[in-house]
Design a protein around this nucleic acid. Structure first.
Lengths: 180, 180
DNA sequence: GGAAATCTACTCGGATACCGCGTGTCCGAGTTATGGTGG
DNA sequence: CCACCATAACTCGGACACGCGGTATCCGAGTAGATTTCC
């Protein structure tokens, strides 16, 4: 199990499809988003409620509803997505062992427990560096880099797929709905 | 559960007692090291076998044995300890979702799966920053910083405690061993 | 033909099952110094 | 007095129990557009 969960991976991949024309669509249903990538639908739905609470996406309820980015893609950093889904769980949780030194007995002196544990400080520094690195990258940066590898026809393919999925679902009432 | 385990915390605290005169001793038994800090003995023993395999400490077997640093403290980085105990487990494990896009069908094209996933690349960069930060700090640095807070009499106290523990154990054969 | 009722698709939120992994414990094996014993 | 033996202390390594949290699934509630029905 990694520190950055697969939920973040799912979320990021989904959000990349929502970065607007050129690389995808601007709004889509969570179901379509999940089925597009072959990931569990219900799980992705839970992720998007977190993204919604964090203010990264806006959701329109009811039929024909869906989710969309709340801000332009270049104003959403990878760190935003990570903290929205995984929370800001620490890289390391200090158990304050420095105060348990046997020579202290039951009551450790003040100089031993005041301030931040030196080991903890090192870890916090490393965590800070990691966060800074994640904050430097925006969804737009990521989208550009992904799109650079794909042929020009791929973008329209994506859009077409979403449209076909939406209209197709609205048509088959009694035909394939029975066979299903 | 954090990415950097409590095992690393135990290990670092133990190693700090082994950074030589001034801040501690140069050699000690794993049992004493663990009891000094009130942490589980057997667990720490397992940690030191990892540290031994990684070449960070040397262990002399048999009675009167113990562990000691294999190199000077300034040549052992925090990253060395982390990787020795936790292994080099990745911050993020890519599930290669990019290849599962529904428009690809069963066989994703080469341009989609070649190279490193863009999202993965961002995470690797963040992980690299974190590692660099941990590599900058050595055991000696840490020891100096910890020692700066303690009063001057603390170092000798530590040494005395270890000596008393070792000689005391060798004496009580039948006296306190019965009462225990 | 238009308004109301129904139906469907969608987002939200909680409850729950599963499972891998970190934490902690226990025990046996191999090794070495120490203390006692017999020659 | 010296050689030998038993014992204790120590590291090493594997096996295993436990609990937590990430992953995944299911279901009910609420909402809004589309469809049907009824006057």
């Amino acid at each position: 199990m990694s520190h950055i969960s697969t939920g973040v991976e799912y979320g990021l991949h989904c959000l990349l499809y929502l970065t607007g024309p050129g690389q995808g669509v601007t709004e889509a249903s969570v179901r379509d988003l999940a089925e597009m990538q072959g990931v569990p639908v219900d799980y992705v739905a839970k992720l998007f409620t977190k993204l919604h609470k964090a203010g990264l996406v806006i959701a329109t309820e009811g039929a024909k509803g869906g989710v969309a980015l709340a801000r332009p893609a270049h104003q959403i950093s990878v760190l935003d997505v990570v903290t929205a889904i995984d929370g800001d769980k620490p890289l390391f949780d200090c158990r304050e062992i420095r105060g348990r030194c046997a020579v202290f007995g039951d009551s450790p002196p003040g100089w031993a427990t005041s301030g931040v544990c030196s080991i903890h400080a090192v870890m916090l520094q490393a965590e800070k560096r990691m966060r800074e690195s994640l904050a430097e990258q925006s969804l737009a940066d990521l989208s550009v880099r992904v799109n650079a590898k794909a042929p020009r026809a791929h973008g329209p393919h994506i859009v077409k797929w979403f449209e076909a999925k939406a209209t197709g679902r609205r048509r088959d009432r009694g035909s394939s709905a029975v066979s299903e």
